[in-house]
């Protein structure tokens, strides 16, 4: 078991109301999974991924990462966990615009506290996503698909326990979206990287090994797919 939500609730104040985003969710994710959290808007899938990605804390319940309960960690401790153990791929790529592709990838290693041989690791990571010739380009000089590849390299370069991908294909055309998904699936199969997606893109769900469906903050289905 690499990460786990145990009896997790999450509520947000919205004006005078208290919105219940998650209502007692229990989910366990094993190493090497390629799992999609699916559901309509407001179902709680992004909230669940935020908790698994240590971007947020639950209102109640426990969040385990490699056996450690991270629900009660301080901001800095959560940051350290994210830096070393978790990779992120965002819908809008979220590259730092003033840094080149290699610097964006290197940033993840710096923040993870990696000291030596960073340049080799950065180049290798970018080569693996097919961007060997784009090391010194800034995000504005790259296409959307290329930017998302840089984001994948940034997420994977530090060999994280899990990679959280929130709607990773939403801002890509279908060709690029498919290529990106194939790339992630390839990383999953060849390197055993654990991917957790939040999406309602059928193309993503079609490639998932497991689909956890949420509705109104509760898990309503948990389907394990046969390898495709």
């Amino acid at each position: 078991m690499i990460c786990q939500l145990v009896g997790v609730t999450k509520s947000y104040p919205m004006g005078d109301l208290l919105v219940q985003a998650l209502r007692g969710v229990n989910v366990s994710v094993g190493a090497g999974e390629f799992t999609v959290f699916a559901g309509p808007s407001g179902s709680g899938k992004s909230t669940a991924l935020n908790l698994l990605g240590c971007l947020d804390r639950p209102t109640s319940g426990e969040v385990f990462l490699d056996g450690q309960n991270v629900a009660t960690l301080s901001d800095d401790a959560l940051g350290a966990v994210r830096a070393r153990r978790i990779g992120f791929i965002f819908q809008s790529f979220n590259l730092i615009p003033v840094l080149t592709a290699s610097e964006n990838v290197d940033l993840a290693l710096r923040l993870a506290g990696v000291e030596g041989s960073r340049a080799e690791r950065v180049e290798k990571a970018l080569t693996e996503v097919g961007l060997k010739d784009y090391l010194h380009r800034r995000p504005s000089q790259l296409s959307g698909g290329q930017q998302q590849r840089v984001a994948i390299a940034r997420a994977l370069v530090k060999s994280p326990a899990i990679v959280i991908a929130d709607e990773p294909t939403a801002n890509l055309d279908s060709t690029n979206g498919e290529a990106i998904l194939d790339l992630m699936r390839q990383m999953n199969e060849e390197k055993g990287v654990t991917f957790l997606f939040s999406t309602h893109d059928p193309m993503v769900m079609a490639r998932a090994k497991r689909v956890v469906r949420l509705k109104d903050g509760e898990v309503v289905a948990d389907e394990v797919r046969a390898p495709s």
């Binding site: 990605g53 971007l55 901001d75 800095d76 940051g79 350290a80 966990v81 994210r82 830096a83 070393r84 992120f88 965002f90 979220n94 590259l95 730092i96 940033l107 993840a108 923040l111 993870a112 940034r154």
Partner: peptide, 9 residues
Amino acid sequence: TLLALGMRR
């Protein structure tokens, strides 16, 4: 993003 990547506040 910087915070998500682990940069300290």
